[in-house]
Structures are given as structure tokens and as C-alpha cells.
Design a protein around this nucleic acid. Sequence first.
DNA 1: AAAGCGGGGGT
DNA 2: ACCCCAGCTTT
Length: 350
Amino acid sequence: MHLPNPAPIDAAAVLAWYDTHARDLPWRVSPADRARGMAPDPYRIWLSEVMLQQTTVAAVKAYFLRFTSLWPTVFDLAAAPLDAVLKEWAGLGYYARARNLHACAQAVVNQHGGKFPTTSTSLQTLPGIGAYTSAAIAAICFDEPVAVLDGNLDRVLARYYALPVPVRDAKEELRAALQASVPGRAGDFAQAMMDLGATICAPRTAICMLCPIQPGCVGTKAADPALYPLKAAKAERPVRKGHAFVMTDPAGDVYLQTRPDKGLLAKMTEVPTSDWAVDLPAVAYPVQGDWHHRGQVIHIFTHFRLELEIWSAAVAPTGLDKGWWAEPKALKGEALPTLFRKVLAAAGLE
DNA sequence: AAAGCGGGGGT
DNA sequence: ACCCCAGCTTT
């Protein structure tokens, strides 16, 4: 074991800090309102938590406000077409989240009468809700005394315990240590610890002087807390290359199509491309036309770097049947991931 | 247990 | 250039 006898976090100190330093977030019930008995809306907490998976608060805010404006309740979201949800999600990334979000809304409506389950165990059976999100919803909405452990908390706890191994190799120990620290105000505690990780114990800077749990922090005693968490070996990012084809018809409309149901950017909108390969494939234009090279687009995915050669041409609107022709001014409303917005921009559209 | 899956902002 | 973020699902 790496933590033979981990001291619990001083939850009272964390909560006292939170009472005066809680961030003001669109989906949050403030600690003062919570103390008055105001309870968070599980729909809004769920929506925010799904959006926040691997995504920063700053990026989420506008999407959250847009979604709750369009679909104020889980019934509204469940009744929306998946296409509309994907369009609104475009640009936020990890598009499986949007498909699971829609499926989850429908499950809540059709199988739970429109009410979210109230325990972490039952929440975890829903699409797109895993260990973290189920715990977060149960704690924040229903004060279930459960450990809410995310990447943010991994870092805080690795520092607090001066964890001598990468977090990956001690995940359950950290969870047990956090679980042993959860107080009655479980929801506020969960949110407080995340605020602590975001504002005090941040990835590169730890403002230990302001930290409510600095007295018990082994990382500050033993060494520089910023040394933690220890990093596992890094994997190199491979490169893939391909061609992208932007076609306009005599009316100036752009040819778009829908990506396959599974895999990368599933069901999102794209322009035709070649395969993406280690060696740049030979150019094979989709149809005849006066093709021009419009430069290169580089896009970084988590697991590879993509380099696309951009080609554009004015073509006759025949011989293409999979997709549709879209007016350039309507591109903003399409379910285009950032990659293909870059492609269209390189071709002089958008 | 490992791999696949986006995008953006901070440093 | 690199890091990392309120992770989940599939294999």
C-alpha cells in the first residue's frame, strides 16, 4: 500500500472556506442558498456534469446557458431531435457525450417518469453516467455521502498525501481516503474540493498560503507540492495525413455529408475526405472539376495529429448522392466539428 | 487493463 | 510545445 494510514481531509475547514469562496456558476446553488434549503435541479446538475467531462468550466458556460434556454427540462431535451442536440454540441468535443446525453434524457423520461434516480448506484446505470458523474449528481443534488473523485481531485489528493506513485496506480486508495473524509454536507464538500483544485491547488501553481487544508498537507511539508502528481510515461502522438475536398455548386452552395454512426466524430457533419493514413494518400477527387490546392489544415486530436491538404472546386451538382448542398450562410447551424470548420475556413468559406 | 474519443486555454 | 481539464464506453 502506498498510503498505510491516510489522514482524512479536514472537511470542516474546507466547508468554511467554501462558504466564503465558492465560485458563482450558472448551474450551482450557492452554499448560503443550500443552507436555506434550496436544492439543485438534478437536470441542470446532470447537464453541467456531462458537459464538464474533460472540459473546462470556461468552455462549458455558454453551452450550458444555450442548452437550458432551448431545453429547460429533461422532457424538452428528450423530445428534441438528436440532430438538434448534435448541432448545439458542435465545438464542445467528445461527441459520444451528446449522443449519450440524448439517450439518457429519454431513459429518464421513459423509464423514470422524468425524475432522475437519487442514488449514485442507480444513476450509474444511465447512458453517459459513470463513476464520477453518478457520484457528483448524488452528492450535489441529494447529499449522498460519496467520494466525488475527478482528475482535479486526483491532483489535490496526490499532493496532500505526497503520493509516491502515479495516480493511476493508487486510484482506489485515493478514493478510500476521500470517502473517509466526506461530511454531512456532501454536496457542498464535493463542490468545495473542486473549487479548491481549480483556484488554489491548480495544475501548475499551488497557492498553499490560502489553502484551508494546508496544515495537513504532506506535500507542502515533505517537498514542493507542485512536484505531484508523479507523471506516468508519455505516449508519442502519431501523425496521419489526408485530403479534404470542398465543393461548391453553381449556386455557391457547399457539399456536406454525415459521418458514419460509429468511430471518430460519429454522426457529425463533414466535407468528403480521403482516408487518413501514415503516408499521404494519392489525390482522388470525388468528381471532376477545376481543383485548386488551398493549403493545409492541422488538427490535434488526443491520440493523433491530423494534417489535411485542402482542395476546392466549383463543380456540377451531379454524381454526389450521399450528402446535401448547404448555403454558406447556413454553415453556422450545421453539426460541424472544429476540424471541418477549419477546413471550410481554409477553402474561403465561413 | 487498455484504447478510443475533441477541443480549448494556460504556461 | 506541452499540459490537462468536474471521464465514459468499448474491446
